[in-house]
Design a protein around this nucleic acid. Structure first.
Lengths: 144, 144
DNA sequence: ATAATATCTACAGTCACTAGAGCTTCAAGG
DNA sequence: CCTTGAAGCTCTAGTGACTGTAGATATTAT
């Protein structure tokens, strides 16, 4: 059995985050010692590792919750897990594309400025004041 | 003079966000009508456009506040504006690199799963449960 | 036994918004 | 002029995923 600090060390998930996950129901409430301290099993260690891994891959807490549910139903078809993962892939690719556009503009803006001019002639500031100078249509994702 | 709704429409910044920006001091409090409604000038319209543009490029509210201050000091050297923009560029590039690594793993995970197997044999779930299968070291940015 | 470290809960903060309740003001139409 | 609907107001709390701290208790090491 592991203490919360031990679990945190082994998984890389912070103590406060582990408590948070318990609070929001992502993980089950831990059993307690007589002194009210949490203790975790090996399988709970593995579960938290799964969660951390999925978080690193950008899955939302909600999606991870679903994946965990699916994992409890071995007879279920895994199309849903695949859908969740595929959706995550698509979102990641969209984010990359969007950031690439931002990079283009930031490169353009920064390479014109040697940082020794006056503010009144500042290319960074004038570029930010004038979207018309932008080559790439970097508008924030219009999905919202 | 523009109403807040008018300003919102012209700039693409939502009404609630404009109020929020006033609350946090990013923009000056608007003058009011007898009926207590906000009215904005052409120059305030331009200022909000600047802010929106900078937000789209990923600058934080804090950074934008600094850029706005710099803009008020025409005699100041623009090295600081350049620093802010360059820092933003570097962060954007780091984020792209990180997302690329995530994409690699998500591609690997999703392409193995046709979605018709059982959960007990699910590659998505087993991959999330076992970081050892990862080709790319996609650990979350360890900058935190 | 004592001191240091780990753990606990409760509450609030982070960042950039966002929503909704309940009210007032404004503008358009009859 | 009156009515109605749209726009605007403040206040408060919520979003998502954490994160920090105060004040207390429990555990571990010396």
């Amino acid at each position: 059995m592991f203490s919360i600090g031990s679990l945190s060390q082994k998984t890389g998930v912070k103590v406060t985050t582990i408590r948070y996950y318990e609070q929001i129901g992502l993980i089950d409430p831990a059993i307690r010692t007589e002194g009210n301290q949490r203790r975790y099993s090996e399988s709970e260690l593995e579960r938290l590792g799964f969660i951390r891994h999925a978080r690193e891959l950008g899955f939302s807490i909600e999606a991870i919750g679903k994946l965990i549910e699916l994992n409890q139903l071995p007879d279920k078809v895994c199309a849903e897990a695949n859908t969740i993962a595929y959706k995550q892939l698509v979102e990641t690719q969209a984010k990359i594309a969007s950031l690439k556009r931002l990079e283009t503009e930031l490169l353009r803006i920064t390479k014109h400025c040697k940082g020794d001019g006056q503010i009144s002639d500042c290319y960074v500031l004038s570029s930010l004041g004038d979207h018309g100078k932008c080559i790439s249509n970097h508008g924030a994702d219009e999905s919202n």
